[in-house]
Simulated scan of single mutants.
Amino acid sequence: MSPYEIILTVVFGSQFTIGVLGNSFLIYFFTITILTGQRMRVINMILIQLSWANFLMIVSKSIPHTMAAVNLKNLMNDHGCKILFYLNRVSRGLSLSMTCLMSSFQAITISPSSSKWEELKDKAPKYLIPTCSLCWIFHLLLNILVLEKIEGPKMSRNISNILPYGYCSTSAATTVSASLFIAMVSFPDVVCVGLMVFTSGYMVLLLYRHHKQVQHIRMTKLSPRASPETRVTQSILLLVSTFVSFYSLNSILAAYIHLRRPRAWLVHSSAFLAACFPAFSPFVLISTDSQVLRYCSTP
């Protein structure tokens, strides 16, 4: 193996290990909570689906690119590439949708009683399961479109109409058709990101106002610890900024890969960025979720 292949193997292998461990723990925790009959928070229904989506995305992204890095991509055929690519696209869309849904649900939950969202507070839990089901159906159907031109890896360098994805390839389309395809599949993502940024900003504003209202009560306390409102605000900002940063960089690279013939390092960079949020977001959730922290601290 060359030094380049060793670096890729270590990077994707580490990302795979971290992501699988973090998401597996959350899946285990929420499953145990359900099976033991403990009080189930409504938002846990979103978190367990988010954990599964992140887990599937890590598996469908890191393993194939690790195989490609060590020149084992010949083990993949057309059907294997279609399955992995479809699984990756569906899990990616679900990860985005569930993150957006979680942010929206939290914004509705903590909104003051005098706000316009007061009527949604009681109805939101009832609409949660149908909304999650629609998200699954939507992404399962939408991403069928990407399967038509997905093929196995092409070894010949003389084929000019093939775009490589490390372990798979796709027939290159014209600039106009590629742009239309990117716009079509990206529109739901843009809507979700915009909604997530809006609801997260709304929550930060609410928490800031609440912190100002109760600040005079805490003036007499000389505790160096941050207030609960500050810690929640920081966790929301961390999740949103991390997601938007990784998503934006990966979207730019993905669009470039669709429109131009990319180099191998650019393909691997896009794959690494795509799997960063699902790999590290579980640890953000674990460190900020009081229910999970109590479970971890229980002997």
Rank of each mutant, 00 (worst) to 15 (best):
S24Q: 06
L180M: 14
L238I: 14
A107T: 15
V240H: 00
S104F: 04
A226G: 04
N71M: 06
T9L: 08
M196G: 02
I27D: 01
S60C: 12
L222S: 15
L140I: 15
Q106W: 09
S227Y: 08
I83N: 01
S133V: 15
L87F: 08
S281H: 07
S241L: 13
L237W: 06
V59F: 11
I46N: 02
S91G: 03
I236H: 00
F277K: 00
R263K: 12
P188H: 06
Q213D: 13
P125K: 00
I63S: 06
G80P: 07
I27K: 10
S287L: 06
F55P: 01
Y167D: 07
N71H: 07
L253F: 15
H258C: 09
V284E: 10
A69S: 15
F181N: 03
Q215C: 12
M196C: 09
L35V: 14
F283V: 01
V204S: 03
I83Y: 04
T230L: 11
I159V: 13
F280M: 04
L163Y: 05
L142F: 06
V59Y: 05
S290P: 09
M219K: 07
L285S: 03
L140D: 10
Q15V: 08
N23W: 08
F187G: 02
R225T: 14
M1H: 14
T9Y: 01
H79N: 13
M196V: 11
E5N: 08
V90A: 00
F12H: 00
F105C: 03
Q49I: 01
R263G: 09
L239P: 01
R41D: 15
E119I: 10
V90E: 00
Y28A: 14
V240W: 00
G93K: 02
R157N: 12
E229N: 13
D189S: 12
M1K: 13
